[in-house]
Design a binder for these strands. Sequence first.
DNA 1: TCCTCTTTGTGAGCACTGCTCTTGACTTGA
DNA 2: TCAAGTCAAGAGCAGTGCTCACAAAGAGGA
Lengths: 233, 233
Amino acid sequence: MNAIRTARQRARDELTREIKAEARRQVVAEGPQRLSLRSISRELGMASSAIYRYFPSRDHLLTALIIDAYDSLGAAVEDVESHVPREYIRARWQALCTGVRTWARQRSQEYALIYGSPVPGYRAPEETIAPASRVAMALGRLLADGWAAGELRPVQAPPLRPGLAEQAEHVATVIAPGVPREVLAQALIAWTQLFGMVNFELFGHLVGSADPADEFFDHAVDCMADLMGLPAE
Amino acid sequence: MNAIRTARQRARDELTREIKAEARRQVVAEGPQRLSLRSISRELGMASSAIYRYFPSRDHLLTALIIDAYDSLGAAVEDVESHVPREYIRARWQALCTGVRTWARQRSQEYALIYGSPVPGYRAPEETIAPASRVAMALGRLLADGWAAGELRPVQAPPLRPGLAEQAEHVATVIAPGVPREVLAQALIAWTQLFGMVNFELFGHLVGSADPADEFFDHAVDCMADLMGLPAE
DNA sequence: TCCTCTTTGTGAGCACTGCTCTTGACTTGA
DNA sequence: TCAAGTCAAGAGCAGTGCTCACAAAGAGGA
């Protein structure tokens, strides 16, 4: 709106940032459930009630952190993928996957915040869905590029059930226009596979089987690439 | 040990059960984080401090619930799978998957308890790992049966990296003796895929794409069956 | 039976939490 | 300059997990 914000506005923005920064520090250090508004206020040297001028409740503050986490993950994935030449579709997929995994391992508490079990009674608000879809968008672009270049092999899979065909068609229009629904159905599988593996690795469900998970992860990523019909190269 | 337990022992067992039952009711109704020892004691008409004679901490009570949840899921899956004739390998896989999904949808809070993000600083204790592996065991039996019957098709996948080959070999000896490691590597993928989908469905990450997820789920289950080389039938 | 020893329940209390509300001080724009 | 709007502070409410000293009650040996 106005480039010249008032002093009050600037102070408000700064304090909002500081509160979020301290909150993130606590989440990273001790997990989302230990996040305490009172200890934030103590750390910032203000009264606990003052926090409520900036975030109406603990959940609102958590939501802000969630949005930031989605954005951070999206940016990280976009960044790592952008370093791969555009025409290497399979390499871009691999970069996307390792990007997600690396980010998740480095910032596991924030990952748990967005992909772990939601806080009870917590319903993801409207403003989270855009940042939440950045990773999916990256996958969509990659598929669209591969399709446009005529490099995707036909998928080997059972025919789509009608409802799924419709959903896949809708996803295609939003995320990868022109790409056939069969490809997007397989991409949905690959997508849930990716986060399923990262979840299991981070939450300890691979202990005793595929732990450490590096090679298993790479292997699965390859299999998913084949499932989507990505070119070998 | 002794069939004739003392009155004290019987009272103790009963109260332990009642505490767990009330705790489970609260978890089902409001989620794990709202579980409150004080409100349990209030509901049971006892002093809050008395609970600590039965569970040394809130986390210990949660662990007991987690074990019960694993056992309940394992039993449900075993039950639904046992109703399929032993020789229908693919149908057993499908039954296993829908068994997991159905249980998860019916008891979502308990599912979140075991497959959501772990409570902060919470480390899964030793006694959870046996009940936690019941679903994996069922998958192993199914593969072993299929292999013994000579019905598994050779898997179409990249060769295993050495570390993964070793891990798959180890999983095979524990869960599906005799079955080649290549099959178990694909089974690991199918396994993470299964829980990845259920996670995403329950935690709202499929909203806007594959929601409702029934057909997508069935499709993915089929694809995973193919990935493992299960017979068509 | 009596008399210890152990187990169990109680209630007060500590240190903490999210959140509300009143009160008084400050900034801002007309 | 001055009313309107904004903000921080502090007290307070209702709740939490957990500890501890103490008093009943049961268990088992002499």
